[in-house]
């Protein structure tokens, strides 16, 4: 019994050591997003609370905590309360398999990439549940849109992952990073990286694909009826998902914790910092896209996903596998 408790405590300690930095960086990333957005538009953005406005998110969180939580009378109460919890939980549990360095990962499971993919495909439930339980037209329309959009773009993300897996020969995320020691996959699979980036934008409901919460048409989409801390949980879950997608992009294409060149000043920096740099780089790209690209129309979005991305990435699977087969480079024989 004693050993059970010691295992339990060490695991809880490790989980807290992972989750607390993730939550803090989600708060910081909201600030960064608003800041980048403001700079593109020649504004200053949040710059009052703390140095450079760094504590703006904490002030916002405090505000959300003290606001009243309103549950609509005609809503389905249990599902309504469960929806933000589901979103938040799913956004956080996927961080368990992200490798921050060699042997520096909470759960080094064999099917890590499948786990990431599965959890991110579950993310749609938080949105559907919220939209349906609100029992109101705008949230419902937003939820339906979001579900269709996320299911569509998951397909192309899945095919892109197959491309990477063909080059690695393993579903383990650490193996995927170690396979990029000589060459990051962003170079041979550059078109796939671009498609992955755009699909990640759609998967996380970021602009220019933020149709589920298009404020001009749907007020705030599935979040319309939410208030106070429940709204903040949706918000946090969304940004945690965005960070996760950036981390996934960094691990799949940008060599995870590896340094760009294996010479002295670069490889002296520990691996986790490289991963964080890469996540930040991808996130700033996300923020720049938000600031510069206008919103897509819904039929254009579906057309892009099904008629352009899916055929192209399927074609690239054939191309990659024939290339690997012809030059006898297939891994894991």
């Amino acid at each position: 019994m004693d050993s059970y408790f010691s295992i339990l405590f060490s695991e809880v300690y490790k989980i807290l050591f992972l989750l607390v930095p993730v939550l803090v960086s989600v708060a910081m990333i909201v600030w960064l997003d608003r800041r980048v957005w403001a700079f593109v538009q020649k504004r200053r953005g949040p710059n009052v609370v703390g140095p450079f406005g760094l504590f703006q998110s904490l002030a916002d969180a405090l505000k959300y905590i003290f606001k009243e939580i309103i549950i609509p009378a005609s809503s389905n109460k249990l599902v309504f309360v469960l929806a933000p919890v589901v979103t938040m939980t799913l956004a956080l549990i996927s961080w368990a398999v992200i490798p921050f360095g060699e042997d520096f990962v909470l759960a080094d499971i064999n099917v890590g990439i499948l786990y990431l993919f599965a959890v991110s495909s579950l993310g749609v439930y938080g949105i559907i549940m919220g939209g349906w339980a609100s029992n109101s037209k705008y949230p419902f329309l937003g939820a339906i849109r979001s579900a269709a959009q996320m299911v569509s773009y998951e397909v192309s993300i899945g095919v892109i992952i197959i491309n990477v897996l063909l080059c690695v020969g393993s579903l383990n995320l650490s193996d995927i990073v170690m396979a990029q020691q000589n060459l990051w996959f962003v170079i041979p699979l550059f078109p796939m990286f671009v498609i992955f980036f755009i699909s990640a934008l759609a998967e996380t409901n970021r602009p220019p694909f933020d149709l589920p919460e298009a404020e001009a048409e749907l007020v705030a989409g599935y979040q319309t009826e939410y208030s106070g801390m429940m709204y903040a949980m949706f918000w946090l879950g969304e940004y945690a998902n965005i960070l996760l997608m950036c981390a996934m992009g960094a691990v799949l294409f940008l060599g995870g914790w590896l340094s760009p060149i294996d010479i002295f000043p670069f490889n002296a920096i520990p691996g986790p910092f490289w991963l964080i740099f890469k996540i930040l780089f991808l996130f700033i790209l996300f923020a720049l896209v938000k600031a510069t690209v206008p919103r897509y129309r819904y039929d254009q979005l579906m057309k892009l996903g099904w008629k352009i991305f899916l055929p192209f990435s399927l074609f690239y699977v054939v191309l990659t596998s024939s290339f690997l087969l012809y030059f006898d480079l297939l891994p894991g024989k």
Binding site: I109, N110, V111, L114, Y115, F117, A118, S121, L122, V124, Y125, I128, W132, F140, I144, A147, A148, V151, E154, G158, L171
Partner: peptide, 25 residues
Amino acid sequence: EFLGMIMLIVYVGAVAVLFLFVVMM
């Protein structure tokens, strides 16, 4: 583990979403 994950991806991630869709609509 592979079967478990595929079960999650296919049934929960795709099939059940469509079920939910149809039932709600």
